Structure formats: structure tokens, C-alpha cells
Amino acid sequence: MAAAAEVVHRQGVERTTIADIARAADVPTGNVYYYFKTKDDLVAAALDEHSRQLDALVEELERLPGPRERLVALVRGWVEQRELAARFGCPTGTLAAELDKRAEGGLDAEAGKVMRRLLDWVAGQFGELGLPDPDGLALTLVGAYQGMSLLANALRDPEVMTKEGARLIDWLGSLPGGEEG
């Protein structure tokens, strides 16, 4: 699943083959065919991996003492991935956009579910801060990330992520609510 997520992120759905996944996973092609009969099966595995990675990230962030610290750590994590984003964009965002262009499968809705889980978690953090309209603030933050990932990718400039990430951290620090800063 990790190999499927990585290769699909780097090459896109349409250009990825089962042989590409087998090479990345360092397994015989037949092994991949055994588990993934179709390209949609591979895409579903990639989405499962994105979901698993989101769960692991949230679990790690939840160890931090407060919601503002969690949100700042989230943004810092995005910025740490700036080279990858500049080359390939946001893994889930680019996959969602690509799947939306496909006529069949319904996997675009599955990608949207992963994004929705992130939005809900972020909204929960804003809610813990006692801020009005936590859902709107979550859209602002995640939308800013998607935008900076897209621009970093389009411009092939990782510094877009660095600069915009710093702006987001400053913005988070300026918001009222909570004790931590």
C-alpha cells in the first residue's frame, strides 16, 4: 500500500502500472496482481495508505498539549514536506483532483473522505480554542495548504511552502483562544 501511494503520487493514476508498484515495493509483479486486480484496486490501496498516514499524523499531533500547538505542528509538518510538494503537489489533493477527472470508479469520493477527515480534525482544534466558525477556519487553513502545495508544485519552488507556512503559523498565533501560543 505504501508503494502504491508513493508511485501514484509521483506518477499519477493514469501513468502508474502494476509493474511500477512491484518495482517500488521490490516484489514480483505477480504478487502485486494477486492483491490488486485492477488499477482501481491500486488507487484504493493508495487512498487507504493516505488514510493510514493521516491517522498516524493525528495520533502524533494529539500528543501535543494544546490545539494551537497541534495546528502549528501540522503546518510545520507540511513545510517539512516542501521538496516533495514542489515536485509532486499534495499527495491527497493531487490524487483527489486527478480522480475527479475520471469518468468511472467513484474513487474521487473516497479521496474526498480523507480530506474531510483532515478538515474535521482541524475544525476540532479550532473548536477547542473556542473560536467561532471552526469549520470555516478549518477550510481556511487546509485550503491555504492546498493552495501553497499547488503553487509550490506549479512553480517548482519549495520556498513557497516555507514562506506561506510561516504566514500560517503567524496567523495561528494571532488567533484568540486557549492559553498556549
Rank of each mutant, 00 (worst) to 15 (best):
L95E: 06
F88N: 07
P134D: 12
R23I: 12
F88A: 11
E83S: 12
R63D: 05
E83H: 14
N31H: 12
L139A: 11
L151W: 00
V142S: 06
R70W: 08
S149V: 14
D20F: 05
K163D: 10
E83F: 14
M115S: 13
L71R: 04
L118S: 08
G181E: 14
V13Q: 03
K101V: 10
H9C: 07
V43D: 01
I169R: 01
I18Y: 09
I18A: 15
A97S: 11
V8S: 01
M115E: 11
A44I: 01
A97Q: 11
N153P: 00
D40I: 09
L155V: 01
G93K: 02
L150H: 06
I21K: 11
L57C: 05
Y35S: 11
G127Y: 07
P176Y: 02
A44Q: 09
Y145K: 04
G93I: 00
A25M: 08
H9F: 06
A123S: 12
G93T: 01
E62Y: 01
A22Y: 14
A111D: 11
A154K: 10
F36N: 09
E69R: 01
V58W: 00
D133P: 04
K113I: 06
R68A: 12
R76V: 02
D120T: 13
V160G: 03
A96H: 13
A46S: 12
T17D: 07
A154M: 11
A44F: 05
V43M: 01
